[in-house]
């Protein structure tokens, strides 16, 4: 029973949808284990310019319950699909300013090839499948970012 509880806690820590910023260093440190010879990460940040318009702010909204479940599924599938040791997915929500962190995917593996492939696959899946939406606030008004 205790073992099951610990496992559940572990998954919750590896998948997060949060308002507060995250420390990339802490995540990378967490992935440094004896067997891991490669850690690849993707960090998504708020652009200050998009399609010729200044972006003053990015509002990130999620349907949290479903999005968290989706992130857990994506992580689980990545662990099956690729020869990797572990994966972390953290997505922020709320009102973010240019240059702030939005999303972090980090993958550890024995070799770099599988870490690169898994990291790229995970972020594509997150963008395509997790119910998380972004609205850019520009001097012309607000606009939802649609499509991958």
């Amino acid at each position: 029973m205790l073992f099951q509880y610990s496992l559940q806690q572990e998954v919750v820590r590896l998948i997060k949808i949060v308002e507060e910023d995250f420390s990339m260093e802490e995540v990378l440190l967490r992935l440094k284990t004896g067997e891991a010879g490669a850690i690849v990460s993707f960090l998504g940040v708020v652009k200050s310019l998009r399609e010729g318009d200044i972006v003053n702010e990015l509002i990130v909204e999620a349907y949290k319950e479903v999005a968290e479940e989706k992130l857990m599924e994506i992580r689980k599938e990545a662990l099956k699909k690729f020869d990797i040791i572990d994966a972390v997915i953290i997505h922020r929500i709320g009102r973010l300013k240019p240059l702030e962190n939005i999303v972090l995917v980090a993958v550890s593996s024995r070799t770099r090839k599988s870490a690169f492939e898994a990291c790229s696959w995970i972020i594509d899946e997150v963008k395509a499948k997790a119910p998380i939406w972004k609205k850019e606030i520009t001097p012309k008004g607000g606009r939802w970012v649609r499509g991958a």
Partner: peptide
């Protein structure tokens, strides 16, 4: 019942 757009991508 929740109704929501597919993932935003981007």
């Amino acid at each position: 019942v929740s109704i929501f757009p597919p993932a935003g991508g981007g």
